[in-house]
């Protein structure tokens, strides 16, 4: 099928591209935009290695076609660092806690955790596990990942005690 033009915002940068309809969002990010931080693990929606944030919510980029992202916003691991290239508190906590080994699932883990902390600055352990429950890691046994997310949350709260959930106005607390 003939390529179609799309316009997508990725990490606050606007891109216009021609894509065949069947190109997945994952392949678009990697092969067209060269943003290879997002990884393919299973390409059938189970492992979470391809997790990105789409319109503010974490999703699997292997389960969307790029053409569906036309007019939408995507955040990837490349967008986590500050403008100066400095690490985000979450990234830094992953480093500090050695929350990775081979690094392959790491971008997906970071994006899932990033979305969690944005919505919920003080997650319980169960909430952390729920947030990354669909992201498989074969190296770590998850121990240091959970520890890193906890550490990041703590440091972010200490740095900004006023911070509350954002981008999650419809969240209901019971």
């Amino acid at each position: 099928m003939k390529p179609r033009e799309i316009s997508v915002t990725v990490n606050a940068k606007h891109y216009r591209s021609e894509v065949p309809p069947r190109l997945t969002l994952l392949d678009y990010l990697r092969e067209v935009l060269g943003l290879t931080g997002t990884h393919a693990g299973c390409e059938h929606g189970v492992c979470g290695a391809c997790s990105v944030i789409f319109d503010g919510q974490p999703i699997r980029s292997c389960l969307m076609f790029a053409i569906q992202a036309d007019g939408h916003e995507v955040e990837t691991v490349e967008g986590l660092a500050g403008a100066d290239g400095g690490l985000s508190p979450l990234q830094d906590a992953f480093w500090e806690a050695h929350a990775l080994q081979c690094g392959y699932c790491t971008p997906g883990m970071l994006m899932a955790s990033h979305a969690l902390l944005r919505a919920n600055p003080d997650p319980t352990e169960d909430e952390i596990k729920e947030a990354i429950g669909g992201n498989l890691c074969r190296c770590t046994g998850y121990q240091q990942i959970v520890e890193a997310v906890r550490l990041a949350a703590k440091r972010m709260r200490e740095a900004d005690p006023e911070a509350g959930p954002e981008g999650n106005k419809d969240r209901v607390d019971e």
Partner: peptide, 15 residues
């Protein structure tokens, strides 16, 4: 090693 991976700058073969 971790520094490059948390920035999405690993260099895997598919990259």
């Amino acid at each position: 090693e971790d520094r490059r991976f948390i920035a999405g700058q690993g260099r895997f073969v598919a990259d």
